[in-house]
Each structure stands twice: as C-alpha cells, then as structure tokens.
C-alpha cells in the first residue's frame, strides 16, 4: 500500500523536520519504504511550505505526490493551497486554532488538534510540529508511535529531547482520547460537499 502524505504550514514551523522525522520513523524503524521531498525555494520563514512523504510497502519509484491521502496543515495559507489536492475520502489534520475551514470542496475526514496551544503550554510554540506528529500517529497509524519515539532522538537538539517527546505524547494522547469519545459520538467532522 502506498500512502501519500503532505505536511504543510509556514516556513519556520518545523514542517520539513516533520517530514524528516516521519520518514525516518517509517523507513528505519517501521521498515517500510519512505521517500521525502520538500518544496525547495526562496520561501524561508513566513510563507506556505510543505514536505511530501510517500510511505509504501513496495519500493517507491515515482517520488512525488500524485493524490494526497493525508494532508496535515498548520497554517491557513497552506491548507487553502493544498486542500484541493486531497482525494475524496482523504484525511485532513489541522491545527484548530490556526486553520479555519473556509472553502470546503470535496469530501474528506477532518481531525483537529490545538497543536500550537499545547506546545505553548509546554513552554515553546516551536514544539507544535511534534504535537502534530503525535496526533498524526494516533489518527492515521501510518507510522507507529514506537518508531516515532526512536526517530526523534538525533533529529532534535539533545537538550530539548524530553520536551519534544512530551510534545509528541501530548498530541498522541489527544488523538487517542478523541478516538475513545468517538465510540459515543463522532469526533471527526465528516465533510460532505457536492
């Protein structure tokens, strides 16, 4: 199975690092095939940027997204830009404080987490990407949380390792508790549009 994932947000939010950590977890520790490519250009901080990650049981030849199965968005601009490419029935993960779904087209499952707010509670908003990765792991199960925990060391500064792991756990737990609630009432907003 081939899963095509796009992590998106603003330059400076650690979006590319999200793609690297997820790809590293998938390929080195889940032992799947993973290829990460990134938007490469003058967009340093403050404009829409994205990392594309293909995770597959088979070798990945064509390295780019042709249809987005999972879109992770941490900014309004990025969500507006990449949402049209999400396939019908695809999964959208957003930072609920930063993305407001204005233009709805297509049908997909939307999941929300206050990633940046949680990160601020942990002491630094720069951890928002790790909260989102935890949430991503809980919701999609494309990459296992155990493998993420192995991939994070070495990918973030050593002195902030514990904090990064906390941030990941916070996002993961948010996803799991949403899943439990789901048994009673639906947590994911299923967006159905004509």
């Amino acid at each position: 199975m081939r899963t095509e994932i796009r992590f998106s947000g603003l330059g400076g939010q650690g979006i590319i690092l999200s793609g690297i950590i997820a790809g590293k977890a998938a390929s080195l520790f889940d032992h799947k095939h993973a290829t990460m490519t990134q938007s490469f250009g003058p967009e340093a901080r403050g404009s829409a940027c994205s990392a594309q990650l293909i995770v597959s049981d088979e070798p990945v030849f064509y390295p780019y997204i042709t249809k987005t199965h999972v879109l992770v968005s941490m900014s309004q601009d990025a969500c507006d830009k990449f949402l049209p490419d999400l396939i019908a029935g695809g999964t959208l993960l957003v930072d609920e404080d930063l993305v407001n779904l204005r233009s709805r087209s297509g049908s997909f499952k939307m999941f929300e987490v206050p990633a940046t707010r949680y990160a601020e509670e942990l002491g630094n908003r720069i951890l928002g990407n790790l909260v989102m990765l935890g949430y991503f792991s809980a919701i999609t199960r494309t990459v296992s949380p155990e493998s993420f925990k192995k991939a994070i060391p070495g990918s973030v500064p050593q002195r902030y390792l514990d904090l990064n792991i906390h941030a990941f756990d916070r996002g993961f737990e948010h996803g799991i508790s949403q899943g439990k609630q789901k048994k009673n009432k639906k947590s994911a907003k299923v967006i159905e549009e004509r």
């Binding site: 390929s27 080195l28 993973a34 290829t35 990460m36 990134q38 490469f40 390295p63």
Partner: peptide, 10 residues
C-alpha cells in the same frame, strides 16, 4: 540532479 540531491530516503 536537483531531485535526487534533495530527496531524502534510507
């Protein structure tokens, strides 16, 4: 080429 140079894999 730029693609292979900037592509990340195992």
């Amino acid at each position: 080429d730029e693609c292979v140079g900037h592509m990340t894999e195992k």
